[in-house]
Design a protein around this nucleic acid. Structure first.
Ligand SMILES: [Mn+2]
Ligand SMILES: [Mn+2]
Ligand SMILES: [Mn+2]
Ligand SMILES: [Mn+2]
Lengths: 221, 221
DNA sequence: TAAATTATTTTGACTACTCAAAATAGCGCA
DNA sequence: TGCGCTATTTTGAGTAGTCAAAATAATTTA
């Protein structure tokens, strides 16, 4: 069985390669795991020897099928646990990430299946992040963000791609939750600002960077 | 924060000193933790240096107030988690011990409080083991067992003091659960046997050793 | 094309935990 | 009083994971 350290390495390689290039740099990985770069290099060489990753020296690292399976299982646990904490225990959605970061390593598949059933087999966690299926299928969908979508169009928030407590609290306070509807009233690229309006007639300014973390889909019908 | 290894050492010292002498031997501790005796000695010396235990060389080890606080908190997590797994997730009571053994180290106090509320602040876990209070009070009660109680008296099972899957499955199959009522019809000490009868008119023979693991109280009124 | 900057890897060292096997202490018993 | 058994402790060694700092490779800049 992989240790929780190994599980964290594999999960973060998966997250960092999501959507982007499939070679993850040692630098990015080290930042994500809060270790120095030399530690990441050493660890990746060990993981390569054990068959979890492929290492292109000086280029980056990618998951093998085995490593990907482990990573998806950990991610599934993480997101189902977050959903449980919010939906059943009514915890603050901004604080559940840290809890899940621990619990993802000590929950058995048996417990996870029962949790899944209790929650009604959810497709996404409270932040809109897709939950990998038991078979390891990750429903990766490309959405526009508030930084890239069309202006003056009714939108629905589908996902917040940032786990920090501060950002999630900010989003919560301004009713920027998955399911909320809004329009982007304008953008000022030189100033790096986007202005939006939630259905409750609230106007709000956001940096383009922050806007890029809020994913939306056009509101049909 | 103590590591999960440290938490396990402290918890097992608490369990081994329950009721019995307050000096736990290295041998007993090593068996409980599945390590060789030398490892236990080394570890205990480290725990003593950190103020969790008092070590009387060649005599045994006992918890300091600090160590006891940690141990009680871990035990509380263990037993509340077991209760959650059985009462909410409907898991088999014989298999939850192993799960709780892991989860007890990764559940935060915040989550635990909410679990406690969800469960209705239970006083005991599914095996009848008392759950330490949040303040760290462990309701230790001395009960008779099927090996020591009076014969031909109506009894109620209050606790099963053994965590192995096999024993718990056996108890389950024979309706020997906390809350069940029965009488001890006889004992044959030389043969090492006790015979009992459950209210469903079931007769059953048990070794005295096994009988000693089932704690009972006289059925009042 | 050479120098400078940046990212990665290597080296040496440290902590936490563990085991195997040898040394020692504390008995009970003759 | 001394012998032998048993439990405990010590010693030496190994694994997993980490950091600081030096070495190296790759890329950018001049
Ligand atoms: Mn984690
Ligand atoms: Mn999430
Ligand atoms: Mn444990
Ligand atoms: Mn129990």
């Amino acid at each position: 069985m992989p240790s929780s350290t190994v599980e964290n390495y594999l999960k973060h390689i998966l997250l960092l390669s999501e959507g982007a290039q499939d070679l993850v740099s040692m630098g990015d990985l080290a930042v994500a795991l809060a270790v120095v770069p030399g530690t990441a290099t050493t660890m990746i060489k060990a993981l390569a020897r054990e068959g979890y990753v492929a290492h292109q020296p000086r280029q980056g690292v990618s998951l093998t099928p085995t490593g990907r399976t482990v990573a998806l299982s950990v991610l599934r646990k993480h997101r189902l646990v977050e959903t449980f904490l919010v939906n059943v225990l009514k915890m603050d959605w901004a604080s559940v990430h840290a809890e899940a970061e621990q619990l993802e390593h000590s929950i058995s598949d048996e417990v996870l299946d029962r949790l899944d059933a209790l929650l009604g087999y959810p497709a996404t966690d409270p932040h809109g992040d897709p939950i990998p299926s038991r078979k390891g299928k990750l429903n990766f969908q490309v959405y526009a963000s508030l930084a890239t979508c069309a202006l003056k169009q009714p939108l629905r928030i589908v996902r917040i791609t940032e786990q920090t407590t501060e950002f999630l609290q900010f989003a919560d306070q301004n009713h920027l939750l998955p399911g909320s509807t809004l329009i982007v009233t304008g953008r000022n690229l030189p100033a790096g600002l986007a202005t939006i309006k939630t259905t409750g007639t609230r106007a709000l300014a956001l940096s383009i960077t922050a806007a890029g973390k809020i994913l939306v889909e056009p509101l049909r019908r």
